[in-house]
Design a protein around this nucleic acid. Structure first.
Lengths: 128, 128, 128, 128
DNA sequence: GTGGTCTAGACCACG
DNA sequence: GTGGTCTAGACCACA
């Protein structure tokens, strides 16, 4: 389902949360669907269950999923409208990305191009 | 020569290495040129010299410069900068950012708009 | 008789125990009266009987009711409800809430207003 | 400085974060002041440093403090204005508090009285 | 010295 | 079975 890179300097917890976030954004899950259990996913990825649990908790704090003791984590039904927070988070992430590109020697056009590809990766898919 | 932001959550070491990498990529130095000494640069930036030393070390590990005890660091002969890594990092960061925006309820246009702002935030620097 | 909210993050067990505690505090039962059986109440609420059983167990631990195998749970003779604990818990929760508001930049009036709304949200139930 | 109760069912991490939040709300620290180090506070409280670290991280996520590797955690300078999130958090906390009180058998007047006391606990103190 | 991350595993709460 | 919390300690990154 998702892949992680234990050699990356990026914390596993963030990698997992990020990957799940992307999966959710692509609409692969319907609201109400259950995510794999913490221990299940941890086993699949070969990491400690605590690491996955923290990733889940983070997504729950962001309002993307609902986790409750004794039950599987489920995708949250409604879409939030707290766009103010989202917007500032977005700004920060995009700025960081642009900085990465420029510092790495990419041209502005390269970056724009990559951005377009990324956006296209999340096709306007309808709720089939 | 370069600027750093002590309020950023990005490690100083990385900021310095990144800025130097960019400077090198812009061809401001010829192979064989000497970089400022660790203590010199540390003094200019107002940071601990260990931090600068580690940034130099990192660049040396990447094969961009050569550092030897008792000598100034010098630019290495040539070497295509590792843009491949940069590119994939960029892709990943942008994908995550787009996912953040979509999950937060922003429209694609909102995201494009925010991206443009982010890009504009890095001014159209000329290769002087 | 009592209502529970399966969407709340508050454990079902606690919701049930709390509701029963409140019912008892309102004097709806005389000492010696029988409570509904665990399975009966579980069926009415649509939850697992283990959950109800644990709520009863908790009340029994608090000395409010008496449960014995093969008999219905009965109300215990008397006992001032432990309002002292409730009061200090309340104080703590309200202090935390006020701190949240102030740190978030809200005015004291905003907080008072929000408090009033919260209180109003629990309707003016009469002790029928 | 702060007290915790290891017998409480409330997670230590939350107790610590909550206590610090209150301390901050009371203006005992000036922006820029340093908090005790993670290991220092952990030692004082008799808990594992990870527990304190998580509490600090939480406060940092909320924008109340700034934590950076290699440096002490410091109080964040500016006051955020993201009142939308704050407001909804406040609502939830106050509702929960009111529920606690009512379920515990307190009268509405008792609750209002306790709220007033809590609010008064955060005197309108000026930046002396 | 600071904080950050991860593993490991105990123990608990919930259904 | 689920997730939650805590301890313990290794190891890393940064200043």
């Amino acid at each position: 389902m998702i892949r992680i890179d234990t050699n990356s300097s990026k914390p596993l917890e963030e990698q997992i949360a990020g990957a799940l976030r992307q999966t959710l954004a692509q609409g692969e899950f319907e609201p109400g669907d259950e995510l794999p259990s913490v221990r299940q996913l941890a086993g699949d990825l070969g990491v400690h269950f605590n690491t996955v649990a923290r990733a889940y908790r983070r997504l729950a704090d962001e309002g993307l999923i609902i986790v409750r003791r004794g039950r599987s984590a489920v995708i949250r039904p409604q879409r939030r409208t707290a766009t103010r927070v989202t917007k500032s988070t977005l700004q920060e992430q995009l700025s960081e990305a642009v900085a990465t590109g420029l510092l790495g020697g990419l041209s502005r056009d390269d970056i724009v191009q990559t951005f377009k590809e990324a956006l296209a990766g999340f096709g306007e898919r309808k709720k089939s």
